[in-house]
Design a protein around this nucleic acid. Sequence first.
DNA 1: ATATCGATTATCT
DNA 2: GATAATCGATATG
Length: 227
Amino acid sequence: MAESLTSTHTAPIRPLDRAFFNRDPRRVACELLGKILIRGRGKNRLTARIVEVEAYLGENDPAAHSAAGNTARTSVLFGPPGHAYVYFIYGNHYCLNVSCEPEGRAGGVLFRALEPLSGIETMAHARSLEIHGPKDLAKLTSGPGRLCEAFAITRARDNGCDLTSAASSLWIGKTIGEKMGEEIGDEGTRALSIRTSPRIGITKAVDKPWRYYLDGNPFVSGRVHRK
DNA sequence: ATATCGATTATCT
DNA sequence: GATAATCGATATG
């Protein structure tokens, strides 16, 4: 009873299949917009809509971590598609990617921003934030490091995780959910307005427009492209 | 509003 | 030894 008042009603969420990720990261990136990232199960489940991503190619992309070759750090990118590549950066933050392309070829998509749907209190606690309004809400998952903190994503815990299995602690799903009466995550039937730009925070291949985000979505990270 | 900077460590040269 | 797919704080217009 009390639970039904506090939790968001959602239709069953089904994982994306491995073939979805067995493609060019740019195509995967576009189609990931509007899909759902899920952590945990039942009452403690966190869900959020994917609103901003970047594609990193396995070949001819000097900005990609895989450009340095298959190392202990990047091996997941060279493995089978649909798995989590988590790396630690700037001594402070984790970032989440999903591997693309068939095994033996690198490539991935970086998650840059999410729109929280359920488990918002848990996310706020993980981020050490108090939510007093929409502006605070945006700070939960707007940015690659922020969303990892909100979802408690670490390399030790999540690197290599199969994101195509609903049995995983972390996975990616498609569904028709509900938030403030609006349908979300309804792949294909809703025309999403997608914008592109150069990728953020890189110093190589800065001209490639491989950042993708939902036009006008308030949860898209606001950081500017730097040299 | 934009600009700059410190934090802090895994990874690579 | 330098750099980094970032963030949050501080300074300045």
